[in-house]
């Protein structure tokens, strides 16, 4: 009896996430959905994203922005995580604490407002450019990238490992090539995937700083939810695929990381 109740509960908990995720996917493949069950099968709405210039350019802008945000975060976070993992000074500790509290107290809507206020007037009229959107997405993704990277430096205990390698006569280049990079890479890549997925779906800050020139896919989706649910369904489904794929990737990397820490 309680065993069945448990199974039922488990079933419900799984469906709670899966059913909403499936809605845009089912909608995007069906010709018509007004009643309980959808009707017909079509790829027309996906075709529309790729052939309508407005949607296609939004797709490209989204990909460029997400890639840019990931690269920017890579340059900023990897050296910083390396350094903050080692810094045992008060400044180091304060920066580590700050990096976890800042994004909490300043949610995206505030980041967006502050960016618009600071960069909308000459000589710093950057809002409305794709550069500003990349910066905004990098800011939103930064806590996730930073945390993932710092954790992977922590779990492998980079400091001890590097010192051991150095005492065995490994040069700096050899330490990087054979010790640090292979051990930290899964965590860094997981962070990068997370930033990519967040950037592809980001709507709130984008809508504040993007203007008309940097129209991303979610901005298009926002218009289409009011105009045409079928086009909206294909864009939504695409965003679901990106989320699911990046999570499959992160799970794979997570298992790899677990393997690494168990080897030690």
């Amino acid at each position: 009896m309680s065993r069945w109740l448990y199974r039922l509960l488990l079933m419900f908990l799984i469906l709670y996430i899966i059913v909403p995720l499936l809605m845009p996917v089912i909608f995007s493949f069906s010709i018509f959905w007004q009643d309980i069950l959808p009707q017909g099968f079509t790829l027309r709405w996906y075709e529309a994203i790729l052939t309508r210039p407005k949607n296609y350019s939004a797709l490209m802008v989204s990909l460029i922005v997400a890639t840019g945000a990931v690269l920017l975060n890579f340059i900023i976070c990897v050296p910083a995580a390396y350094a903050l993992n080692r810094l045992e000074t008060p400044i180091g500790k304060r920066l580590r604490a700050l990096s976890s509290v800042l994004p909490l107290v300043f949610p995206p809507v505030i980041v967006g407002t502050a960016l618009v206020l600071a960069f909308s007037r000459p000589p710093l009229a950057l809002t409305g450019s794709i550069f500003m959107v990349i910066v905004a997405h990098a800011l939103i993704g930064l806590p996730f990238m930073f945390r993932n990277t710092l954790v992977s430096f922590r779990t492998i205990d980079e400091r001890t490992l590097s010192e051991a390698a150095a005492s065995l006569g490994a040069t700096l280049w050899q330490r990087m090539r054979y010790v640090i990079v292979p051990n930290v890479l899964p965590g860094v890549l997981a962070g990068a995937l997370l930033v990519f997925a967040i950037s592809i779906g980001e709507f709130e800050v984008t809508s504040m700083v993007a203007g008309f020139t940097a129209q991303t896919l979610p901005l298009q989706l926002f218009q289409q939810i009011r105009n045409d649910m079928r086009i909206a369904s294909a864009i939504s489904a695409f965003l679901v695929y990106v989320s699911v794929l990046s999570f499959l990737g992160m799970n794979y990397l997570g298992r790899k990381m677990q393997g690494l820490s168990q080897q030690q």
Partner: peptide, 28 residues
């Protein structure tokens, strides 16, 4: 097995666009 399945599933909404969620609940 179920534990990791549920944890993976429940980390999905974190990256999901708010607009996708809006779309899903309009349909539901």
């Amino acid at each position: 097995r179920y534990r990791s399945l549920l944890l993976s599933l429940y980390s999905l909404p974190m990256t999901l666009s708010g607009l996708v969620v809006a779309f899903a609940f309009i349909v539901l």
